[in-house]
Design a protein around this nucleic acid. Structure first.
Lengths: 225, 225
DNA sequence: CTATGATTCAAACGAACGTATGAATTGTGG
DNA sequence: CCACAATTCATACGTTCGTTTGAATCATAG
């Protein structure tokens, strides 16, 4: 019998879809745009992926599988090196967010395009994408929360979870791209060429995240509750 | 001649649109949903606002006008009290982000619904919304950037702009609602009842933001560039 | 070479969308 | 109460959407 050997069309669709979803969002990108720019027939997406929903899930899975496995590997190594002792918070943050950001330097893994897609999608998606991502992320998220709990035994767990959430938001914005950044500044783009933008973004964001994570605990209002 | 006195239909449309845009996004909300839930005729939106684009702009303007004016008033007062001296960074941050968050306690000003809409929309919107928000925010943004430049004379301006950006992201996520938070945790909702969620969110987020803003400056990689 | 299954293709489907229209209804100043 | 402007209403228009269909083409195992 004949084998499935369609790496070409499939991969071209995934690449174009990734870029268009990044630029215009899920709802804002039509199948006709995707197939048109990919130079394939309109029906190709439904043939190879089944539906538009399955397509974007595959776009994410293609990158996230490796990312989350890599995060686990890094955390495994850190915990092994610590030998029973808690891992330093900054190392945990770097294992989670640094690994993500360093993906952008590897075009073979989606580079900046996928990163920006992920950043945008974490807030905006059409319900089912959030559910999908939450499911895909559950395992790795629990591992990193646990690691932070052990690394910061004096900080209430609820506080750590919130700060993890804040870090996600800051990172999401940072990578969602300069589009959103224009809201803050118009000259930022001119000051730094796009080549070193990423090189500098990583340490910048990391300093901010660690600073926020290690900030003094908040004083809840007088009444105590 | 007869006067325009349509506060009822107009306001009902705005309220419903605000809630639906918050829940399903701009593209994900149809005119038929809006007019249906508002109990008005389908044509009412086009009659009163002209188009769907104009509608969401009015949804934002109704709340943002007051918010940004209030931010300016608070900053004016802080700078007057400082009498020429720079205002403390934490006070500037509170004037910008605290004023925003305290809006959520005032249902007459949109409450949590508008806040979550704003949080979602800052990353995701259909191009023209980002352009609209960037324009609406330009003036107040410049004022607050300038204030931070004066408050932190030793920190490079580019660094401050980035950290402002990170703070926006963290805040956006925090208020975009518990939907996104579920990605981090499943039990968070049970731990705190929704009543005090906001009371505690404000100091929590504020600690994180200040911690990030005042974090040690990043060391750019060895090579110096 | 031929048979068979995998893939591509042009065309069409029904549904949902934002908007426009013109008639009916309502409220009000003169 | 009448005339006129403001508002509401039912209905339709033209587009675009994601998906389906059935035939055409391609690649390969026997």
């Amino acid at each position: 019998m004949a084998e499935a050997r369609n790496t070409d069309t499939r991969e071209r669709i995934l690449d174009v879809a990734e870029r268009l979803f990044m630029a215009h969002g899920y709802d804002g990108t039509s199948m006709r745009q995707i197939t048109g720019e990919a130079g394939v027939n309109l029906a190709a997406v439904n043939y190879h992926f089944g539906s538009k929903e399955s397509l974007i899930q595959e776009v994410f899975r293609r990158r996230l599988d490796w990312l989350n496995e890599e995060r686990m590997r890094v955390l495994d190594r850190l915990e092994a090196e610590a030998g029973g002792q808690p891992v330093k918070p900054s190392l945990i943050v770097d294992a989670f967010f640094g690994t993500l950001l360093r993906m952008a330097e590897d075009d073979a893994r989606g580079g900046m395009t996928f990163l920006r897609l992920l950043g945008r999608t974490l807030t905006e998606p059409s319900e089912f994408i959030r559910a999908f991502l939450a499911h895909e992320y559950k395992e790795v998220m629990d591992r990193f929360k646990e690691a932070l709990f052990r690394a910061l035994p004096d900080v209430p767990k609820a506080e750590i979870v919130w700060r993890f959430h804040f870090m996600l938001g800051a990172t999401s914005y940072a990578i969602a791209g300069t589009d959103a950044l224009r809201l803050v500044t118009d000259w930022q783009i001119e000051e730094e060429d796009s080549v070193d933008r990423l090189d500098r973004l990583v340490p910048r964001l990391m300093s901010f995240l660690i600073g926020g994570l290690r900030a003094p605990l908040p004083q809840f209002d007088q009444s105590g509750r």
